[in-house]
Design a protein around this nucleic acid. Structure first.
Length: 900
RNA sequence: GGGGAUUUAGCUCAGUUGGCUAGAGCGUACGAUUCACAUUCGUAAGGUCACAGGUUCAAGCCCUGUAAUCCCCACCA
């Protein structure tokens, strides 16, 4: 098998994924048998430790497509998973699919409407079945897209949010809460979307500033202001501030409610702000959240005047049955005619909207199931304050605690059929029995059940999606009360910062309530992926980037590298194609590095033959046989034979690779993905290719080339899984999958020799810089390098010549000539004719000035006695060393200038 | 009103507990061309680290204040 000239992701990616999946390496339950290389009977993978690593996928919508945010999620989560798998952990990345209750329902309802139907033609069970079929039809794309992104998740363990075990667990929790008295049914005001005809939790409401009108209406002698005159019919009081002198003597009296024959009381309540308007406010407990509370305090009647379908009820005949908007017009007109409308002005106020359709939400009185969150929240706060969960970014811990402290009771009832039925049944028979009105029962497939001779009817509502989602870590890991589960709590929960409250908070509360433990040890939150101008992506702006397009054009790895680049926890960040292109280039670079290494191995290595697991044209016989449980022997990446470093460049490379591994490990531990990618990019491109491989064109150390290439392949694998695997399979000497390789060991090298190579690099750079700065072009080919009494240069002529491309390097015979290079410890000259040297004079002067400025700064520091006294000794020494070096350099440059 | 962020090169971002002359990618300029890769190689230019004070031997980093931008929560009769 040969390496094509450039890496073509499309030719490899799907075959590679299929081979991984077939091998079973993504399922830790198939691969957790001991690995025993040295035959001592102990599992010796990763220092013998065989601990677990678990992470769950925030479930994408089962019947949707992945968007750019999913792309980021997968890049982050899969990098972690692959990294810890390579580190030898039993890494379990559990995939999921979301029934996406409301989202899917909205799509389905639109679909129904487009076919001329309405949801009200069907009963709930029928609708549920229909949506189920609808989702089943649409399903599957998302899972294919996850594969295309390289997600190394255990597909056998995919959890759908309506799976039986999920529903069971949700019912168990609900039952426990019911028994613990945390669930109550209450008539409360809820945010109600008249279009979708369902209530929402507070968190789902979107407040937007809107322009509106504030009308002043005379209730006898008292003027009240309102933006919603149509709710006047629901007024049951007028409130004034108890300290407001204007109304002191009116408290306890009544006013006449316009357009009706009712008298309503004037009450004293802090809610009325004396500064606002006239200081008197109408109270409509059934249609306003604040008024509801005032009503509770004063025991006021709640009169619902707007029905769930948005029409007027419980109002005088002329207004009955009008829509709220029509009613408002008529009320205003009638008030005006009676001279009771005494003023109006434009105002801006914030209005609650449905986050899905934008309809103005109607605060509506409704009986719903609520969770008393007091116990859940306070427990969560305690564990959070205890530091049991580490947050990235850190500040989110405080933000979350702050949120939990102000958390209100949680409305878990939704009036949409697509979801998990609430397992509560209401007594039908109005007979006097001691039986409670509501009972818990799991048989939600039945509309009516009978218990102890009494018939009960199922509540038609379903659970808020977040109620079941809150169980995600529990249900994905199959946590049970009975058995110890090494995968729970999860090592990390990775998700979007925007659902910290909606999801993360609820998982923590639920995890603690159900299992007594926090559901994860760490939380990593990512920000939004913005477009290249820093704008939020949206369909209406037309700036949406489809991750699958990028994958198709540049490859999955390029996308992953691109989206991780420069990203840090919790931050919204712009994203552009450029970073993906940079990623694509790195993949191609790595491919060509491997191509060169393989060609050297082929030339020099004896008897090398391809043992790749499969060919580029498709999975071959060697890859597919592993179907039942992975044999680790067959799938684990191999490690090459020992090597010896034979020259300075090799020692240097080993040193740099070790340092790279250190930094990548450090970065991954701290979730600094961008940093890990950055250091790998630098190491592979600048160090491995530009310096080391260039020297290997001279000294071909086959065993070292093999080992070091494996090192960079494995280290990059978490971020660029496909190209590293494609190369691994293409190389003649590697075995198994790089996806299941061992994280590289540190390389042995001679540190003194490694440091020597730094000197070579400095010399080479100086030669290059000078050659570029000299007048004329093609200088490298024109001028030779001369050296005087310099063993480093003498011994490394070949390397220096190769790297600088100068034609010859000679020992200086006789007096110095040409241009002396500005190197402190080396006598090196470029054999440049005198007239050219003179032209270079300005350059030299410039250089002296700049070094002089640096020297001044250093001297200034040393003149400060406090610095010498108080700064750490090694810094002071460093400074003195540098002063010496700069001084030497300057005098050298000056002599040079004098000669000219 | 409460809370959380951001401000560093033309653009997008790093800069971990204070330590040398503030880094990277992209972009720009100049130079290179059969020999792994033009998805390439070499070189360079480009920054008053938002502003003003303070602490310190030393501040992009810590403290105080100011300005601009953004997000979340609550509220707006």
């Amino acid at each position: 098998m040969t390496f094509a000239k450039s890496y073509e992701p499309g030719e490899y990616e799907s075959d590679i994924y299929a081979a991984w999946e077939a091998s079973g390496i993504f399922n830790p339950k198939l691969t957790t048998r001991p690995v025993d290389d040295d035959g001592d009977g102990f599992d010796d993978r990763n220092d013998g430790s065989r601990d677990t690593y678990s992470i769950v996928m925030p479930p994408p919508n089962a019947n949707g497509n992945l968007h750019i945010g999913h792309g980021l999620t997968i890049a982050l989560e899969d990098s972690l998973t692959r990294y810890y798998r390579l580190k030898g952990k039993s890494a379990w990345y559990i995939p999921g699919a979301d029934h996406a209750g409301f989202e899917t329902w909205v799509v389905y309802e639109k679909n129904l409407e487009s076919h001329g139907h309405s949801r009200f033609e069907f009963d709930r069970d029928e609708l549920y079945t229909r949506v189920w079929d609808f989702v089943a039809e649409q399903r599957g794309n998302m899972e294919l897209q996850l594969r295309a992104l390289g997600a190394s998740c255990s597909w056998d363990d995919l959890t759908f949010t309506l799976d039986e075990n999920v529903v069971d667990r949700v019912y168990t929790t609900f039952e426990k809460m019911w028994q613990d008295g945390m669930i109550y049914r209450g008539e409360k005001l809820v945010n109600y979307c008249p279009k979708h005809r369902t209530a929402f939790a507070d968190i789902e409401v979107e407040h937007k500033d809107e322009h509106g009108t504030l009308w002043d209406i005379a209730y006898d002698d008292i003027i009240v202001s309102t933006t919603r005159p149509e709710t006047l019919f629901g007024d049951t009081a007028v409130a004034v501030n108890p300290d407001d002198p204007r109304y002191k003597d009116r408290i306890g009296t009544t006013v006449h409610l316009p357009l009706t024959d009712r008298e309503i009381p004037i009450i004293a309540d802090e809610h009325a702000d004396p500064e606002f308007g006239t200081g008197a406010v109408k109270i409509t407990p059934a249609h306003d959240f604040d008024d509801f509370e005032v009503g509770e305090r004063h025991n006021l009647e709640r009169i619902q005047v707007i029905a769930e379908d948005g029409t007027m009820i419980n109002v005088p005949e002329p207004y009955l049955g009008l829509t709220a908007a029509e009613c408002r017009k008529k009320v205003l007109k009638d008030l005006k005619e009676q001279g009771l409308l005494v003023g109006e002005k434009k105002i801006t106020h914030s209005v609650a909207h449905c986050y899905k359709c934008g309809t103005v939400l109607e605060p509506t009185l409704k009986e719903q199931w609520f969770i008393d969150v007091e116990r859940l929240a306070s427990t969560a706060i305690k564990h959070l304050e205890n530091g049991e969960i580490k947050f990235y970014p850190e500040n989110k811990q405080k933000v979350l605690i702050n949120y939990l402290k102000g958390l209100k009771d949680w409305n878990i009832s939704r009036q949409i059929p697509w979801g998990i039925a609430i397992p509560m049944f209401r007594k039908i028979d109005d007979i006097a029995t001691d039986e409670p009105d509501w009972i818990f029962d799991r048989r939600t497939h039945l509309q009516v059940i009978e218990k102890a001779g009494v018939k009960y009817q199922r509540d038609d509502d379903t659970f808020d999606t977040w109620f079941s989602s809150a169980h995600w870590p529990i249900v994905c890991t199959n946590w049970t009360e009975e058995n110890f589960n090494p995968y729970y709590p999860l090592n990390v929960m990775e998700t979007g910062a925007d659902i910290l409250f909606a999801w993360v908070a609820r998982m923590i509360m639920m995890g603690l309530y159900v299992t007594g433990e926090v559901p994860f040890k760490e939380v990593y939150l990512h920000g939004l992926v913005l477009d290249e101008h820093g704008q939020k992506m949206s369909k209406s702006k037309g700036n949406v980037i489809n991750p699958m397009d990028l994958v198709a054009r540049f490859g999955s790895d390029a996308f992953r590298l691109g989206i991780l680049r420069g990203r840090s926890a919790g931050m919204n960040q712009a994203f552009s194609e450029n970073s993906v292109i940079a990623g694509r280039n790195l993949c191609n670079k790595l491919w060509n590095i491997s191509r060169l290494v393989q060609s050297i191995v082929d030339d020099k290595g004896a008897g090398a033959e391809s043992r790749g697991a499969f060919a580029t044209t498709g999975a071959n016989d060697e890859a597919s046989p592993v179907t039942t449980g992975a044999s680790e022997e067959a799938t684990r990446g191999s490690v090459t034979a020992p090597y010896q470093t034979l020259n300075m460049g090799e020692d240097w490379l080993c040193r740099e690779l070790n340092s790279c591994l250190d930094q990548v490990e450090q970065a991954m531990t701290n979730y600094r993905f961008a940093e890990a990618v950055e250091i790998l990019y630098q190491t592979i491109w600048d160090k491995y290719a530009d310096w080391f491989l260039e020297t290997q064109k001279i000294y071909k150390n086959v065993s070292l080339l093999k080992t070091t290439l494996e090192t960079i392949l494995i280290a990059l694998h978490p971020f660029a899984p496909f190209v590293t695997e494609a190369i691994w399979q293409n190389l003649s000497w590697t075995d198994g999958f790089v996806a299941n390789a061992k994280w590289p060991a540190r390389l042995e090298f001679d540190p003194i020799s490694a440091e020597q190579f730094e000197n070579i690099r400095i010399i080479v750079s100086e030669v290059r810089t000078t050659l570029q700065a000299l007048p004329g072009t093609n200088n490298a080919k024109k001028y030779s390098l001369l050296y005087d009494n310099d063993s480093l240069v003498n011994d490394n002529q070949l390397i220096i010549r190769t790297l600088t491309k100068v034609p010859t390097i000679n020992s200086l015979d006789g007096a110095p000539r040409g241009l002396r290079l500005a190197l402190a410890n080396h006598e090196l000259y470029l054999d440049v004719p005198e007239n050219i040297v003179k032209e270079y004079k300005n350059n030299l002067t410039e250089r002296i000035l700049s070094v002089g400025r640096e020297l001044d700064a250093l001297n200034l520091r040393m003149c400060n006695p406090n610095y010498v006294e108080r700064a750490p000794a090694h810094l002071v020494k460093e400074t003195t060393d540098q002063i010496k070096e700069k001084e030497a350099l300057i005098s050298r440059l000056k002599t040079e200038l004098e000669i000219i």
